[in-house]
Design a protein around this nucleic acid. Structure first.
Lengths: 149, 149
DNA sequence: TTTGGTGCAAAACCTTTGCATTAGG
DNA sequence: CCTAATGCAAAGGTTTTGCACCAAA
């Protein structure tokens, strides 16, 4: 009874591995903004009419992050935000605290200064966190009207 | 009967205002390293033999921060760290993730770049987070011995 | 008495985890 | 049958908050 080849099943298994993963990816692919797990969970319920559990959203996002399919960014309130990764490498962003829109910000020269400063002071295992937060033009226009003019 | 001047009482009231505040300040003043509220609470119990509650430590630290007497810094694991403020103004530090030692790191030119970049992109209410973490020479020397030599 | 500092327990909040259930091959 | 995904509830960890109590003036 020639058992089905294990290797041949692999793609199928992978495709089926996470029933919800494709939905999460679809929600992420709506745009390139950073979103929290909870926002995604909400989107999946409303826009995508799925009944996925929040826990599963977290699990799938963690797996996708490990696989470098999504990248994460910390929000001002320390939540983790996720978005589809467009290329490889680690970047720093100017992030809209309202809509999650992100503008890549070059920091290489500054990072070099950090490293030389750190080694000059005898520090090892240097790591850094550079996050810029603001309100993008679109979000600012929408909310900066205390009363109707 | 010239009632005591209310203003004259102010210092006394202030001194008494927080029974534990002086202890917390004493614990902070042991050195200029950044410490978490929980570390301070532990110190107060052990070294200072006080029985202050953790909640109160948090409350006092929050008040001192508001009064600009202490400054805060976020640890790599997002805990809030506190230390006595030596001068006014906001600074960024290279922080030892083991002992809380901090080296001030000048970032003004970089901050200017951030602001111009942000306004060029139409973002408002810009804020940023620049934190550098490492292991200082002393801590590195102490812990980088997997087994006794 | 009045004000407000204090302690304890519980809540808040995001994220992870334990465990039993279920889906799919 | 067997593996792995899933859902639910609960835990984890830091910081805050509600509430009763107590201390000082």
């Amino acid at each position: 009874m020639t058992p089905r080849l294990r290797d041949a099943n692999a793609p199928a298994r992978r495709a089926q591995r996470a029933r919800w993963q494709s939905s999460v990816l679809a929600a992420l692919k709506r745009d390139d903004h950073f979103r929290s797990a909870q926002q995604l969970h909400l989107d999946l319920h409303t826009t995508f009419a799925t009944s996925i559990a929040l826990t599963t959203v977290y699990r799938i996002l963690r797996r996708l992050t490990t696989q470098q399919i999504v990248e994460t960014q910390r929000a001002e309130n320390d939540e983790l935000l996720y978005r589809i990764r467009d290329d490889s490498g680690h970047h720093h962003y100017l992030l809209c605290r309202t809509c999650g829109r992100a503008e890549r910000f070059a920091v290489e020269p500054f990072e070099r200064r950090i490293d030389s400063f750190a080694s000059a002071h005898g520090y090892a295992d240097i790591d850094h966190r550079i996050d810029i937060y603001g309100t993008c033009a679109e979000c600012h226009a929408g909310s900066s009207r205390p009363t109707k003019t």
